[in-house]
């Protein structure tokens, strides 16, 4: 039992670390603001969630687990607020999203010239 818990928390923490890094790689790789926000939300929800669940298994039933639950709730409730506020503010300042099918090679050259439809 102890062994199974240990292995499960290892798996959760390692996969959480993986998703944390992947989200930030996306933040660097994506072509423009809105797509970057999608990448950052991988870190904020999946990466953070898996890491926190892994830590819960490590902590066992104690006050520490309860604090981790609060931390997870904090992530779940604040991440969408920030994302939404950021998207609203960017739209308000006329940062236009790229729309349509895109491929990496064209993105690098056409990035500044693409005119795309804004939301109606």
């Amino acid at each position: 039992m102890q062994m199974a818990m240990e292995i499960a928390s290892w798996a959760l923490i390692l996969s959480g670390s993986f998703f944390v890094v992947v989200g930030m790689v996306g933040l660097v790789r994506m072509p423009e603001l809105y797509t970057r926000m999608h990448a950052a939300s991988v870190t904020d929800t999946l990466g953070a969630g898996l890491l926190i669940f892994g830590m819960m298994l490590q902590a066992g039933l104690s006050l520490v687990t309860l604090k981790l639950v609060f931390l997870l709730a904090l992530y779940i409730f604040t991440a969408p607020v920030v994302t939404h506020a950021l998207a609203r503010a960017a739209l308000h300042e006329d940062v236009k999203p790229l729309l349509g099918r895109l491929r990496a090679p064209t993105l690098l050259t056409r990035r500044s010239k693409v005119k795309s439809g804004r939301r109606s």
Partner: peptide, 27 residues
């Protein structure tokens, strides 16, 4: 919701790690 997050998070991860970056942003 957590299960949904896990599923779509995996989809986005595959897109990010794909060298061709096959995105098609839509509003």
């Amino acid at each position: 919701l957590m299960w949904e997050i896990a599923k779509s998070g995996w989809t986005v991860t595959k897109i990010i790690l794909n060298p061709r970056l096959p995105i098609s942003p839509t509003m």
